[in-house]
């Protein structure tokens, strides 16, 4: 059996809070290129705190949702235990050193679940 330890990497066990944007479907580029570093869109909030996301030619209105059950963001720890352990420990638990760290907790998200509205360019852009 494999045992994987989940731990909070900080000594005082404090967890930073991250957030998430949830979109219907998935994000695609027109050409199959790596998404790394690419611009997604502009996120505004109305004065009533409604999130407005403009991606390409689409505008999305969303809402702030407090998650009923928060998410932990887990990252697999890369450091593996050294290979030169004493021979007696040889057993099926090859992955004994596997562990995950809780990087953050996500308690709130911006949910954009309505279909994106296209921005109709009926006014020629004056630039």
């Amino acid at each position: 059996m494999v045992q994987i330890v989940i731990k909070v990497p900080r000594e005082d066990n404090t967890l930073s809070e991250w957030a998430m944007i949830e979109l219907q479907g998935s994000l695609e580029t027109r050409h199959p290129v790596a998404l790394n570093g690419r611009f997604i869109g502009d996120l505004h909030f109305t004065k009533k705190d409604v999130p407005v996301l403009i991606i390409g030619h689409h505008i999305l209105y969303g809402k702030v949702v407090t998650l009923e059950k928060p998410f932990a963001v887990l990252v697999k720890d890369s450091e593996q235990r050294s290979e030169n352990e004493p021979m007696e420990t040889e057993d099926e638990n090859v992955n004994k050193g596997t562990s995950y760290s809780v990087t953050a907790i996500i308690k709130k998200k911006l949910l954009f679940k309505t279909r994106p509205k296209p921005i109709i360019a009926n006014v020629p852009k004056k630039l």
Partner: peptide, 11 residues
């Protein structure tokens, strides 16, 4: 799609 964002600010 869930986009994970360390520094997002809410309204």
């Amino acid at each position: 799609a869930m986009l994970i964002m360390p520094n997002l600010q809410f309204g």
